[in-house]
């Protein structure tokens, strides 16, 4: 049964290999002269004043956290969706309660303005 997963592993290795080989060709074939100005970060022409890994908007962080919650929910929904035929009304009810809890949370964050980008 695990035999079926061998091609997946092979494909992943080939895909990574293609990326590495392409980059390798580029580093070998591409010629050019290095120059401190050329190697500096792309900006308006000045040297960058500070490190660019600066503070960023907290909303990106919020989006990431919300993503984890919802993605987990999807992970729970996957097996449920497959077996809905067998678990019937009981399964539907259980998932309805689960979804309801999440929807309440979703409405809360909506009203709190966590989803606003202005």
């Amino acid at each position: 049964m695990l035999n079926n997963y061998l091609p997946v592993l092979l494909f992943l290795m080939v895909a990574v290999g293609i990326g590495l080989i392409l980059l390798g060709i580029g580093f070998l074939v591409g010629r050019g002269q290095k120059d401190p100005e050329k190697l500096s970060a792309y900006e308006c022409g000045f040297e960058a004043f500070e490190d660019s890994r600066m503070k960023f908007d907290v909303r990106y962080y919020l989006v990431a956290i919300l993503f984890i919650v919802f993605d987990l929910e999807i992970a729970f929904l996957f097996p449920w969706a497959i077996s809905l035929d067998e678990i019937g009304l009981y399964g539907l009810g259980a998932m309805a309660i689960f979804l309801l809890v999440l929807v309440v949370g979703f409405i809360y964050e909506w009203k709190k303005g966590a989803l606003e980008w202005d």
């Binding site: 080939v14 990326g19 060709i25 591409g30 500096s40 970060a41």
Partner: peptide, 29 residues
């Protein structure tokens, strides 16, 4: 292919090179 690959002096070299591979591999695999 013939163009020079520039790795900026302030960049993290390893991650800079590995990032394109990480974005092509899933798209193919």
């Amino acid at each position: 292919l013939m163009k020079e690959v520039i790795v900026p002096s302030s960049a993290n070299r390893f991650l800079f090179v590995i990032a394109p591979v990480l974005s092509i591999a899933p798209a193919l695999a």
